[in-house]
């Protein structure tokens, strides 16, 4: 089947259009839905296969990034969301969406429940918003979205992206292969907390994690902003090299697109 993606919007979320575009390119149907339309019952989570929490600045990061939006879901939609999770469907969060999901406690590890917060995304070490391109490496995780992916080149743009959890939680995430992406260099070697490879000081270089089922995934970098070859900062150099080799650059950056394609293919069994 062709999955339908619910793209959450409202209250300062701002990446809904390009995220919808990414899912459309991957072959999904998309619907940008204002959270108040879900609360009012005009739209229902159960009518969708994928829920997408896009990037943005929900509530201006006031009271902590993602916190106020997560509260709004907790207070009004959490039962629907749990039902959605239990029905075996997929949830993806990027940047502010990852922050919202973190505060919702969606990254369940064994012995914890959905709704328990296990981690945090703190202010960047330099305490400042930063936009730059980074490399991230897939850690052979159980995540549905990242099958077949190795190293990606993608932009980050956030002020609060420094992943943190305690050591026991980290051990569990690691043991269960729930650590999906870590910041690395171009060849995929760990950033080892070194700036700017690790752009925010994230613990263990963590850029994205998933829940124990691999169906719920969040990450700080923005793959949806890195789908076209022309998006890449080295586009002009690569174009020049390709030209001299008598080649053409491909239109899309396929490995970044794979995240969205994996989600779509999950429903094409």
């Amino acid at each position: 089947m062709v999955p339908k993606v619910l793209i959450m919007s409202g209250y300062g979320i701002n990446c809904e259009a390009e995220t919808a575009h990414a899912f459309q390119l991957a072959g999904a149907k998309t619907d940008i839905v204002h959270i108040n339309d879900l609360i009012a019952g005009k739209k229902k989570m159960k009518d969708y296969e994928i829920i997408m929490f896009p990037g943005g600045f929900s509530y201006g990061d006031d009271t902590g990034s993602g916190n106020a939006f997560a509260n709004k879901i907790k207070n009004n939609l959490f039962e629907d969301l749990k039902e959605f999770i239990d029905s075996g469907k997929l949830i993806l969060g990027i940047c502010n969406g990852f922050q919202v999901m973190t505060n919702l406690g969606l990254f369940k590890i064994p012995d914890k429940n959905y709704g328990d917060r296990i981690s945090a995304l703190q202010s960047n070490l330099n305490n400042r918003y930063e936009c730059r391109w980074v490399h991230i490496k897939e850690n052979n995780s159980i995540c549905i979205f990242t099958k077949g992916i190795d190293v990606l080149h993608v932009p980050i743009a956030h002020g609060e992206g420094r992943f943190y959890c305690d050591i026991e939680t980290f051990e569990k995430l690691k043991e269960n292969n729930q650590i999906v992406f870590t910041y690395c260099n171009e060849s995929g070697d760990f950033a080892n907390l070194e700036y700017p490879l690790n752009p925010n000081g994230a613990l263990y270089d963590i850029a994205g994690i998933c829940d124990e089922t691999g169906r719920i995934f969040g990450l700080m970098p923005h793959p949806e902003r890195a789908l076209y070859s022309t998006n890449e900062p080295e586009f002009h150099l690569k174009r020049e090299i390709a030209k001299r080799n008598g080649e053409m650059l491909s239109k899309f950056i396929e490995c970044n697109m794979q995240i969205f394609k994996n989600a779509v293919n999950y429903f094409k069994k």
Partner: peptide, 9 residues
């Protein structure tokens, strides 16, 4: 670098 220039793709 502190101004987001990648949003809206």
């Amino acid at each position: 670098k502190q101004y987001d220039h990648e949003v809206q793709n």
